[in-house]
């Protein structure tokens, strides 16, 4: 199963390219990536999934943490966590699609968002594995699809928080 890494980084131009660059530079694969600012606008939070081995994940965590712009890194699978993803799909045979979802994918939430030109946009929310198998099943029905990539968060007291600031005095 894919691993998930969550990190906080400076919300600055260039920071994201350093994170992504690290993956291509060191030959690690990213399956999905999602990023947006947090409640502190100077920080962005990024969630990524990768199917690298555990040893490689350990290296990735250390390499990421080494980036000056990365403030904190967390392996979401190392503690109890939830993970989910959202997708928008556009279909022309709405009722067939909905019945397929209801039949085999009861864990996925869905809503109908729009119906212009008899093309329906549905919003799906659920865990990545389920979402992916549904999309495979719907392959011939889909006009287009877009996904957020997985988001994740650890449960209870375990949180991805910033460390104390380090003050360097001369």
């Amino acid at each position: 199963m894919a691993s998930q890494i969550s990190l906080l980084m400076e919300n600055q131009p260039g920071a994201l390219s350093r994170v992504i660059g690290l993956f291509s530079q060191r030959g690690y694969n990213i399956d999905s990536l999602s990023v947006a600012p947090t409640q502190d606008p100077t920080l962005s939070r990024l969630t990524m999934t990768t199917s690298e081995s555990n040893e490689v994940i350990q290296q990735i965590l250390k390499q990421l943490y080494k980036l000056i712009d990365v403030v904190m890194v967390q392996d979401l699978k190392a503690s109890e966590s939830i993970s989910l993803e959202m997708a928008l799909i556009k279909v022309s045979n709405k009722s067939e699609v909905i019945s397929k979802i209801e039949k085999n994918y009861s864990s996925l939430e869905f809503n109908e968002l729009d119906n212009k030109d008899e093309k329906t946009i549905l919003r799906l929310i659920g865990d990545t594995d389920n979402l992916e198998s549904l999309l495979v099943e719907l392959e011939d029905d889909l006009i287009e699809v877009t996904r957020t990539g997985a988001l994740g968060m650890t449960l209870g007291n375990v949180s991805l928080e910033t460390e104390e600031e380090t003050k360097v005095i001369y």
């Binding site: 000056i68 403030v71 910033t162 460390e163 600031e165 380090t166 003050k167 360097v168 001369y170």
Partner: peptide, 11 residues
């Protein structure tokens, strides 16, 4: 500057 504040820069 006499000193610097850097977030998470462990040495």
């Amino acid at each position: 500057p006499k000193d610097l504040v850097m977030r998470s820069f462990p040495i």
